[in-house]
Amino acid sequence: MTQDDTFMAAEYVLGLLDVSEHSAAQTRLRVDAGFSRAVADWEEYFAEMTADIAPVAPSVQVKRALEQRLFSQPATPWWAGVGFWRGLSFASLALVAVLGWQAMTPVSDAAGPLYPATIASVEGDFRVVVVVDKSVNQITLTRTAGAAPAGRILQVWAHGENAPATSVGLWPEGDTVTLPLTPVIADVTGILTIGVSEEPPGGSVTGSPSGRVFGTVDIPGVRDGI
């Protein structure tokens, strides 16, 4: 980092750069970890200037409007999400085809008890195909892109609506893992959310995801196994 880069980082944070300089800096932030750190440092410093700003309680309507905006729409079904279709690699397609065929076999029961879904990171560097089998209360995950960073492992999380995420189990190695659902998660009906994070060996010590959460997926309409 040159002196000029350091100033550039500060000017970026303050919003002093013109449109082309600003977008050049944004591009650089995606590839240059040193510049990203310099920007984060200035953000940290300047945010401290807000220390003397007194909190102002917003009106209750703001929270109501926010909840309306975020939660009034029903969750997108897994098969309608772009991510699911984009997420299907050849291998996962084969997996879903086999498992999907099993699910479809009892025609009278077309909605389950097998629920396939995809977890994909927004950055596109991590993707997992998930199949929840409610007939035996198991979850199978298959990696089709990405991995835990060196010295870290993957951990699988789940929760029902308005419930905190709980650990389903660790995924220390391999492309595929099958885990029994914990009793709490096996009891979830309605929307079941599955997520994957990277954690220290042995798993998160906080009981919640502590490392990067690669992504989550909401599986709607989950019912009890038969």
Binding site: I53, V62, T216
Partner: peptide, 23 residues
């Protein structure tokens, strides 16, 4: 972290704890 998992209760707590500062 819980909000990242789609946890609305945690998001609610985050909002209640920080909204006055952000406003």
């Amino acid at each position: 972290a819980k909000t990242a998992m789609g946890d609305r209760a945690a998001f609610n707590q985050l909002y209640d704890a920080t909204c006055a500062k952000l406003l």
